[in-house]
Write a protein that binds this DNA or RNA. Structure first.
Lengths: 186, 186
DNA sequence: TGGCATTGCGTGACATATCACCTATGCTTT
DNA sequence: AAAGCATAGGTGATATGTCACGCAATGCCA
């Protein structure tokens, strides 16, 4: 797929990616693959958590550990609901979260962080942040942090708009007075 | 974990991420989660390939479909070897790749793209590129493409240097005359 | 040549993810 | 209130991924 000059082969609707885009995409893919691997590995060995576990805990934590319906949780972390359902059940068995029916709407299962889950997350965050800093930010020139944020935020907004997953509950399209503080993930 | 001001709690060695870094990291994580999901979904439904399948096919394709040892393949795409082993065996059952022992070193299993695998990849690339363009680049202002590439390439170099996975075979650290063309992935 | 550590992989058990489908609620209409 | 539809989730089968090991081919060195 690298070669473009294949006599008269079909071409995607909008054309192939141009040189600059290929460069960006290649870099993105490479970073993504390795970083995911490393984060998973570190969490697993230091805190006995998988990266998906950590994603769930973090999402709950950002919502003050408060009860959060499966569907909302799924939208926050970009998973399918059934995946969340399975995963949360397993995490409940490990006492990291607890599930209960909503008093209001009895179809809804609400997930909460347990005391233990919160402690585990706090402990895990230390090593995780350390790794992120070391692998990601130590390699990132200061002056590129801003542009990187801008770029990724633009892309994110577009993915929300074009993609198939529902937006997170707190989602508000960029633009108009978008200076709200993002909750400090991680 | 969002709150920093927790009376005297332990803090990661290098300190927490600062505001700008948190912003970048949050954006990265969000993009990553959704994008992976969407790519998987599109490939699956349009080409009957998973994203991991696609990663393998692409890596082989970039190497001209040529025979590639499991270990090398693993390093290219940032997987553990045993994962590659399992996955490649399954792909072989689907005639997407073929495996054979190296004549040279009989411990080595060499993986190759089959004719069929190549065709499938070419067909899949159409829709995949289309999706990437639509979700990623259509939302990315032109003037941010360069900075984004730079940023991610810096990060990648750092991950290679600091991480636990071996570098890809064609890896050469940045810096000195780094103007070689990257193979056009995807 | 006989150890002996190393390297490259495969394997089996188990953890996770996905897909298609099922149920229970709740909401709307009539 | 009954019918009909939408929504929230659970489930079970199957595909994938991970981990801990094991085995055979090599490399090294005495």
């Amino acid at each position: 797929m690298s070669r473009n000059a294949n006599g008269g082969a079909p071409v995607p609707e909008g054309g192939w990616l141009d040189g600059e885009q290929q460069r960006a995409w290649l870099a993105y893919i490479r970073v993504q693959l390795r970083l995911t691997y490393e984060m998973n590995r570190q969490l697993q060995s230091d805190s006995d958590l998988s990266l998906p576990d950590y994603d769930v805990l973090t999402a709950l934590s950002v919502a003050d550990g408060g009860p959060m319906p499966i569907t909302v949780l799924a939208a926050q972390i970009g998973w399918e609901r059934s995946r969340v359902s399975h995963h949360v059940r397993r995490m409940a068995k490990r006492e990291l979260v607890s599930c209960g029916l909503s008093a209001n709407d009895r179809r809804v299962t609400e997930v909460s962080l347990t005391r233990h889950g919160q402690q585990v997350l706090e402990a895990a965050a230390l090593g995780h942040v350390e790794l992120v800093r070391r692998l990601f930010f130590d390699g990132l020139p200061r002056e590129l942090v801003g542009p990187l944020s801008q770029a990724l935020e633009s892309v994110y907004a577009n993915i929300i708009a074009q993609g198939t997953l529902p937006p997170p509950v707190d989602w508000h399209p960029p633009g108009a007075s978008d200076r709200r503080r993002a909750p400090g993930l991680t």
